[in-house]
Simulated assay, not measured.
Amino acid sequence: MRQQFLVLHVTDERAPGWDDAIDRPLMDAWLDHRRGPDGWEPNGFRVGDPATAREIVLRDDTVSVTDGPFPEFKEWFMGVEWIEADDMDQAVELLAKHPTARIGRVMVIPALEDPEGK
């Protein structure tokens, strides 16, 4: 059975920027794989600028909302998506081909089998 993974695409100030000649073919290949017979429909999306984000904290029945950007973040999310793979090794192999691996960082987190985490 295939497993789902949450993928976070984040910036990295030390990485090179987007180079259309290099990264467009990587992105096209990624999307082609996703649409292929062993793939799945693309379901990722880009996210807003850090200034549009909010942090919400509930403590002792008091809600605190802080506007972004958040000073503790050195990197920012470029986008998120869900992928399917047989296991973590295959997820890593797939994501190593994504342009974000070159121009930023990719974090992959396995989904739990059930909401209880059992």
Rank of each mutant, 00 (worst) to 15 (best):
I109V: 15
W18R: 11
A96W: 00
D28W: 06
W18K: 09
R2A: 13
F45A: 09
D19T: 13
P37D: 13
T52Y: 01
E84Q: 10
I56H: 05
T66G: 01
P69Y: 02
H9T: 04
P50V: 03
D20C: 00
I22Q: 13
D38P: 03
E75F: 01
E84P: 12
I83C: 09
A53W: 08
M88F: 04
V63P: 01
D19Q: 15
W76K: 11
V92G: 03
D32E: 14
E41V: 09
V7W: 02
G39S: 05
E72K: 07
V10Y: 03
F45C: 07
D61H: 09
N43Y: 15
D60P: 10
G68N: 03
E113P: 10
G17T: 11
E13R: 07
I83F: 00
W40F: 13
D67A: 14
D32R: 09
G117P: 11
N43T: 10
G39E: 06
F70N: 10
E84F: 03
P37Q: 05
E81W: 00
E72D: 12
D20W: 08
D60N: 14
D61A: 12
W40P: 02
R105A: 11
G36T: 08
A29T: 07
D32M: 02
Q90R: 15
M27S: 02
L112M: 14
V92P: 01
V108Y: 04
P69T: 05
F5I: 02
E41R: 12
R59E: 15
R35C: 08
I22R: 14
G36W: 01
M1D: 09
A15P: 06
V10S: 12
A111K: 04
T100N: 13
A51E: 14
F73K: 13
D38N: 07
D32T: 15
T62E: 14
F45D: 14
F77K: 00
G104K: 07
V57C: 08
Q90A: 11
R54P: 03
D89G: 12
Q3E: 12
M27W: 04
V80W: 05
L6S: 06
P42V: 06
E13I: 08
D61L: 07
S64Y: 08
T11M: 12
G117L: 15
L58K: 11
F70L: 10
G79M: 04
D28Y: 04
A53P: 07
R24S: 07
D86A: 09
F77A: 01
K74A: 13
A53Q: 03
E81L: 09
V65D: 05
P69E: 04
D67S: 08
E93I: 06
R46G: 14
V108M: 00
M78D: 11
T62P: 04
V63H: 01
L58N: 14
F70A: 08
D32A: 14
F5S: 00
A15Q: 06
P99C: 06
R59W: 12
E81C: 10
D67E: 08
D23R: 10
Q3I: 04
E55R: 09
A96E: 08
E75T: 07
L31F: 02
Q4K: 15
L8K: 00
Q90I: 09
L6G: 04
T100F: 07
D28G: 02
V106Q: 01
Q90P: 02
G79W: 01
K74V: 14
R59M: 10
E113A: 15
M78T: 06
W30D: 13
I83R: 09
R54F: 08
G68M: 01
G17F: 11
A96G: 13
K118N: 15
V106R: 00
